Computed example of a mutant assay.
Amino acid sequence: MSSESPEQAYLALIASSNPTDTETVTSLFDQLKSIPPSFSFLGEWVGGHFPTLGHPASELATQIKWAGKRFHSEDDVEPIVVYDEQGNRVWCEEWGRARVRKVEFHGVLSAAMVYDSRPIIDYLHYVDEDTVAGLMDSKDPDLPTGFHFYIKRYKPKM
């Protein structure tokens, strides 16, 4: 039996490029802690996703060159930031804006990003001060629930 914490296991999964299944990532996600009230999302976050087998949102994230998320405040979030042709991080207006609220999911009350103009909620769990785990819940038939992603604080290269 592994003595690895859920946080360590999640970070190891991020570091691995091996495909995984949604059930494995969901089980691990459910073991992570809720986002504490003192947590600051403000600023830029780089996004990544797991190569979960067969999820259409994984393919879409690659197609649109998903770069992450940008938090201006609790009530003003750019949920989809992409890379443009020059490699700059730009907000994808097509996806609208979002806000952060506390929402219960699988029995855990934690931060969630609620999209303003799409039927999507991104549930967020704590990995460490610079890494947040995400699980997309959607009523959009083209983007079914179960897309796992993560965001890391953006630290521009000097």
Rank of each mutant, 00 (worst) to 15 (best):
I121F: 02
W91H: 15
Y126P: 04
A57Y: 00
K102D: 01
S40D: 15
A98F: 00
T131S: 13
K33A: 14
P119E: 12
E23I: 12
R118S: 07
F149T: 11
D128M: 11
L32N: 07
C92A: 13
L32E: 08
Y150W: 15
Y115H: 11
W91K: 10
T24L: 08
G43A: 10
F29S: 08
S110T: 08
Y154V: 02
F50H: 07
W45P: 04
G87E: 03
V90D: 00
D84Q: 08
F50W: 10
K152V: 13
V108E: 03
V90Q: 03
K157Q: 12
P144R: 10
W66V: 02
K139F: 11
G96Y: 04
R89T: 02
V127D: 06
H49N: 15
M158L: 12
E59K: 15
V46T: 15
V114G: 03
S40A: 14
F50V: 09
F41G: 04
M1H: 03
T131H: 15
G96S: 09
K102R: 12
E104P: 00
D75E: 14
S110P: 00
H72T: 07
L28C: 13
A12L: 08
T62H: 08
K155L: 13
V127Q: 09
Y126C: 06
Y154A: 08
E85P: 00
M1W: 03
